[in-house]
Design a protein around this nucleic acid. Structure first.
Length: 578
RNA sequence: GCGCCCGUAGCUCAACUGGAUAGAGCAUCAGCCUUCUAAGCUGAGGGUUAUAGGUUCGAGUCCUAUCGGGCGCGCCA
């Protein structure tokens, strides 16, 4: 039984004894026990007297005193007290507090694991950027967050499968293909003007160059003359013309090779950033496997679809959307939305309890539609959880860098992490809450990479490793048993603070996991490191006194275990030397 | 116009989800290496938590309005 629950039990019996309350009445008020921020008010506190005072028509201080007088103090508690507004504080015995260190020593990195009460099978989808260019710094935030969230959810006990939805069908891919063919024609010596709507990055030229080396050739005359109007209209005309002139077979061949190349590019961008995607789900497969028709069949069968103006509409307003949405267009082609309905339905069919999507905040208007899609295929809306990621604004010094994928005018995430390092980039990305805008100053990140908080944490761990090494160098062998039996000698206030914070690691994992706030882990590690550095500055660890020395080394090893485990969740390395 | 998100020290962010005196880093100033790594430590200054009301024992956190910033409202993806 956890100590929290024991204390709660003590309060409940005290309430029945002193106030004559039964369990129902207590539940109605709500019994809370919170862990204290700073130790000056004890380890745990309860606000129950404050909550009851109105009901009982007596001052909170009086109620608190009555409760405390009926509390039977167990030997795990040092003492209890009631204080100013009406809080009741609980102080744990030194022995009870120190037991955390023994727990960490025996469990190692499993300390704080599997703390969640209901284990779920989760599909976590993130990044899912169109394979039309390298991932940029905005995607970097999604990648770092998504991957860390996956690690956090796993740590807390869930089963997680990460997935990248690959848009390998549709207009954007046609444009990508035309862009490559366009370059190929230029390589073949054909003189062509400028077309604004096409992808321009160097990677397009590389793919075209590679195709030419493989012997792929178009060798047909393309005239841009037919195309006129807006960028979009010109591009659409070009797609038709290229399909016509090159022929379907050649077009499909170039398209497939291009998508393959682009996907490899994305996978490398991610894996070099230590981001693991367990699967890449092909949009194209939704067509070839007949999943779109299947999904349309289901929404029709469920009475959620109707035909109007030659198109098939989903009655999404039934499920809270602003208006109904087209699923199959007048010309018979399905919409992007249709793909999403089919995709998300298939996620459920594959047996996942919970679907988490990490989306850019610009997609928030799309959320109710996704929910409607899920509901209309007979799934629960609550099975979908969307995490909206705010934008990254990139600066170089004071200057804002504007980004656009199509023009190739963006900063690839690879440039960012090769410049500042994977550790610093990942930490910086996840140390801000996802609903907060993120200003990323490249100049600052490069110039000050030594001052990045991630080094502060890594340095704390490296220092501990160094102390352990020094201990051995001086001929002292670490004696775990001796350390354990001397934990009572850890009496410095800073030692008590560290032990107390270590004890909060499991609940930090649990809370961050439940609220999907990876940044809480980063903040926790900063606090722990700060305490350690302060401890380091004021205390000599390698001393002649065997008992104290081993107790302190045990404490340091526990700090190191937790730091390494926490950094692991963030996907940041923990060097032993810096 | 309607809807969603955000507003905390000069800058970048915390604050355990409604708790006790709102905390760190950067920048500024003053100290600390004969001693386990100075990528560190110790101290100082810096705030009407955008503004105005409200809810209650108690509000940075919840509700309303206003101001300011970001984003979204296609048979696009």
């Amino acid at each position: 039984m956890r100590i929290e629950d024991k204390i709660k039990e003590l309060i409940v019996t005290a309430l029945t004894k002193s106030q004559g309350m039964n369990n129902d009445e207590i539940n109605e008020v709500g019994l809370e026990l919170s862990r204290n921020k700073n130790n000056e008010h004890g380890d745990f506190s309860s606000n129950i007297a404050l909550k009851l005072s109105g009901k009982l028509k007596r001052s909170p201080m009086v109620v608190a005193e009555e409760i405390i007088n009926s509390i039977h103090v167990s030997d795990e508690l040092e003492r209890t007290e009631f204080v100013k507004p009406g809080f009741i504080n609980f102080y744990l015995s030194a022995e009870k507090k120190h037991s955390v260190l023994e727990e960490i020593t025996s469990k190692g990195k499993a300390f704080g694991s599997s703390c969640v009460s209901e284990k779920k099978k989760i599909l976590l989808e993130f990044v899912s950027a169109n394979p039309t260019g390298p991932l940029h710094v905005g995607h970097g935030r999604h990648a770092a967050f998504g991957d860390s969230l996956a690690r956090l959810l796993r740590k807390s006990g869930h089963e997680v499968f990460t997935e990248y939805y690959l848009n390998d069908a549709g207009r954007q891919i046609d444009i990508l293909c035309v862009s490559v063919m366009f370059e190929l024609l230029l390589l073949e010596g054909q003189k062509l003007g400028q077309v604004d709507g096409l992808y321009k990055g160097s990677y397009i030229k590389e793919i075209a160059g590679g195709l030419r080396e493989e012997g792929v050739a178009i060798n047909k005359k393309i005239s841009l003359a037919k195309a006129s109007g807006s960028d979009d209209e010109i591009v659409d005309a070009l797609i038709l013309e290229f399909k016509d002139v090159a022929g379907d077979e050649l077009f499909q061949m170039v398209l497939e090779k291009t998508v393959l190349q682009m996907t490899k590019l994305l996978k490398d961008d991610l894996s070099d950033f230590r981001v693991r995607q367990d699967g890449f789900y092909s949009e194209k497969s939704l067509f070839s496997e007949g999943r779109i028709e299947e999904a349309c069949g289901i929404i029709k069968k469920n009475g959620n679809a109707y035909e109007r103006d030659g198109a098939l509409w989903l009655e999404s307003t039934k499920y809270g959307d602003d208006k109904d949405r087209v699923v199959i267009r007048e010309d018979g082609r399905s919409t992007y939305f249709a793909s999403d309905i089919a995709y998300h339905h298939h996620k459920k069919v594959r047996g996942f309890d919970l679907l988490i999507n990490v989306l850019g905040s610009d997609h928030h208007g799309y959320v109710s539609r996704l929910e409607a899609g899920l509901a209309s295929t007979g799934n629960k809306v609550s099975d979908l959880e969307v995490i909206l990621m705010q934008f990254v604004t990139l600066y170089r010094g004071k200057k804002k860098i504007q980004m656009s994928t199509r023009s190739g005018n963006f900063v690839p995430m690879r440039d960012l992490y090769s410049e500042v390092g994977v550790d610093a980039a990942r930490f910086f990305y996840v140390s801000r809450s996802h609903d907060q805008h993120l200003d990323f100053d490249l100049e600052l990140a490069t110039k000050q990479n030594n001052k990045n908080p991630v080094y502060y944490i890594q340095y704390a761990n490296a220092r501990i490793k160094s102390v352990i090494k020094e201990n051995e160098k001086r001929g002292y062998l670490f004696d775990e048993a001796l350390g354990k039996s001397n934990l009572g000698k850890l009496k410095l206030p800073i030692e008590e603070d560290i032990i107390s914070l270590l004890g909060k690691y499991p609940e930090t994992i649990l809370k961050s996991s439940n609220s999907r706030e990876v940044n809480k882990i980063a903040n926790y590690l900063k606090s722990l490191s700060q305490l350690f550095h302060s401890y380091y500055g004021s205390t000599k660890f390698v001393s002649d006194e065997d008992g104290l020395r081993n107790a302190r080394l045990l404490l340091l090893k526990c700090v190191s275990t937790v730091i390494e485990d926490g950094l692991d969740i963030l996907g940041v390395s923990a060097p032993t030397k810096m």
